[in-house]
Simulated assay, not measured.
Amino acid sequence: MRSFLGKWQDELKKTFTGKADEVPDWVPKLAEGDDPGYHLPGSAVWAVHGSMSPIVAGIRTLLMQSLHPGALAGVHEHSNFREDPLARLAATIRWIFTVTYGSKAAAEEASRRVRRLHEPVQGSFVDNQGTPRGYSANDPELASWIHIAFTDAFLTAHQLWGGRIPGGPDAYVREWAQAGRLMGVPDPPISEADMRARLDRFFRNGDLRVDSRVTETVDFIRNPPLHPMLRPGYRILFAGAVHSLDPNYRRMLGLSVPRLGPFPLPVRLATKVVLVVVRLALGRRGPSELAARERLRRLGFVEAAGRGLVELR
């Protein structure tokens, strides 16, 4: 039994970091830097990104982002996600955790790096009115869609499966708006209501659609090339992501919450159980958070009960 659990734990770590026995080389660098960063212990961003709900949020984000034909064209025409999906996952995790836990300089450099990689991601697609349109991964409108779909997914998943958010949902949207600015979003939403309204605007304006590319992408997200030991848990997490979707988008994607005859299956509870098991396997605090705390201690910051982060003078 221990041997099986050990192998399962190794495959889980390898999926998220690319390595089973050591952390990626960029993680210890989060302990470097001369400023506390954009986000601190006790912030809404640390609460959301330090939980297990982002695992479900990541699946939901991919499903939502696939609905924009410009975003999907960029993925299909400039990405090797089919051949090496875990590399793309690892790159995304690196950016998220660097902006979350790194110094301001590290967050800014990580975002510049992603934007440089996005520079050749350009092309054209035909919109829903039959008009040819150009796309660029760094285009502000497209960056806005990516940011809003991400923020919506991470907030919703945490509301379903995470704990308390310091300052509430508005605090998370407001704090994570900084990540949008770093990625070229000119006016990211700073409240939950604003974020939902902008998301709905994409839907009402007819900017989103489902075609053969979306169907292919959803099939890939539903059945990624994971190790066989991880597939049962992933199926539950995928069902959780589908459960979390707004019914409008769920219908667009042709997805439905699993049912046993007329009765819906307890997807929310099953997802919670899987996330608890993953938390036990990976530990309460990840290596990125530990590296950030090391930097903060070096800079003279300590956590004081009831006072948040305090700088020692």
Rank of each mutant, 00 (worst) to 15 (best):
P169R: 01
P169W: 01
P169E: 02
P169M: 02
D170L: 09
A171V: 04
A171Y: 01
A171H: 03
A171F: 04
A171E: 04
A171Q: 04
A171P: 01
A171R: 00
Y172N: 05
Y172W: 14
Y172V: 02
V173Y: 01
R174H: 11
E175P: 05
E175R: 01
E175M: 05
E175C: 08
W176L: 00
A177L: 12
A177N: 09
A177V: 07
A177P: 05
A177C: 09
Q178N: 10
Q178L: 10
Q178V: 12
Q178K: 12
Q178C: 08
A179W: 06
A179E: 12
G180L: 02
G180M: 05
R181Y: 12
R181Q: 09
L182M: 05
L182Y: 15
M183Y: 09
M183P: 11
M183C: 10
M183G: 07
V185I: 13
V185G: 05
V185Q: 03
P186H: 04
P188F: 08
P189T: 14
P189D: 14
P189M: 14
P189L: 12
I190T: 03
I190Y: 00
I190L: 01
I190Q: 03
I190G: 01
I190N: 00
S191L: 07
S191C: 11
S191E: 10
E192H: 09
E192K: 06
E192V: 07
E192T: 10
D194W: 14
D194Q: 15
R196I: 06
R196M: 06
R196W: 14
R196S: 08
R196D: 04
R196A: 03
A197G: 03
A197P: 04
R198L: 13
R198G: 15
R198T: 13
R198D: 12
L199K: 03
L199H: 07
L199A: 09
D200Y: 10
D200G: 06
D200C: 09
R201D: 14
R201N: 13
R201M: 13
R201Y: 14
R201H: 10
R201S: 14
